[in-house]
Design a binder for these strands. Structure first.
Lengths: 173, 173
DNA sequence: CGCAATTCAATTGTGCACAACTGAAGAGTA
DNA sequence: TACTCTTCAGTTGTGCACAATTGAATTGCG
């Protein structure tokens, strides 16, 4: 007897779909398929999976692509500024930028003005890569199957969600 | 002269907000703040930051919590089934489950029926942890500031997005 | 001025995530 | 039955992410 995992985990009948509103038991609230955070996590990884081969042709990982996006807009940024833009700390950015530098896309140098900070600047090669990246957004956009309105709504929704979560985290600490 | 990173990166005036609809230049499409994938990525990390201290009290990381959610629903699952539920492969799950086993929350054993697969089963301690986890969903829900309707809409939107991206990734490979 | 507090980038340690691969076990077929 | 194909979990290597710490540079305050 072979019981497919899909049947067991997706179409399962053990937990009848109770009305969404009203006081759902804590039993219901702990269901995996009720967790928005998991849906978010899954969507993020699905995006990553789609981007991975496309970015691979450019020699970039997804977080490296995000850093390049910021640099294509600003040409030169300190590690601190990049961290604010990408919501990443130096522990993540330092090795990432080191790899971008090894790939010849950026150069890093300590600012003369403030010797504590490090400026990250695009090289000619890094600037040139922008041209090859231009096709990416449309390719990915098409893959979502979303129209402009849906996408905007989702984007705004995510923005508010992130702000609310940030606020809650800050209040807690 | 001190120019705050926020001014430079968030409120920047270098790129006037063009109408969302219509043919935006590729220049516009590469803007970091236009990337839904980045908004998703950021929201996911914001969730993680909120969960981290709460889960820390239970001795769990966020992915470990997701695995426990699946197990609290099913008591016993193979690594394969868990991977389908969480969208993770054995390369991620094997060490994660090893840590859960070291923490005494689960036991792993080769199935007698099929010696290839490994069953993951909750221990008494693992089952008991569920009671302490019950408060989490409501705490987190409250932090989002979203009402039931918004949350459901977001959840559904993410579901469709993930399915579409999965489809596109599959067609490409 | 001089010293404490802060800022900034880097490092270390832990854990997640995926690709590529390994090896064992089962399934299907000539 | 014997052979191949597939399935499953685990390992290795690379890279992201964060906490905690370090050390240098700057700022602020007495």
């Amino acid at each position: 007897m072979e019981r497919s995992a899909d049947t067991a985990l997706e179409g399962g009948t053990a937990h009848p779909a109770r009305s969404v509103r009203g006081a759902a038991g804590s039993e219901e609230l702990l269901r995996l398929d009720r967790q928005v955070c998991f849906a978010l996590h899954a969507a993020s990884r699905a995006f990553d999976a789609l981007y991975r081969p496309l970015l691979g042709e450019l020699g970039l990982t997804y977080p490296q692509y995000l850093a390049m996006l910021a640099l294509w807009e600003h040409d030169v940024l300190t590690v601190k500024e990049l961290g604010l833009a990408l919501r990443l700390d130096s522990g993540t950015l330092s090795p990432l930028l080191k790899r971008l530098e090894a790939a010849g896309l950026v150069v890093r140098e300590r600012s003369r003005a403030d010797e504590r900070s490090v400026s990250v600047r695009l090289t000619t090669s890094g600037t040139a890569l922008k041209r090859r990246a231009r096709v990416l957004p449309e390719t990915v956009l098409a893959s979502t199957g979303f129209d402009e309105g849906e996408l905007t709504a989702l984007h705004q929704s995510l923005g508010r969600l992130t702000a609310a979560l940030d606020g809650a985290t800050a209040r807690r600490s």
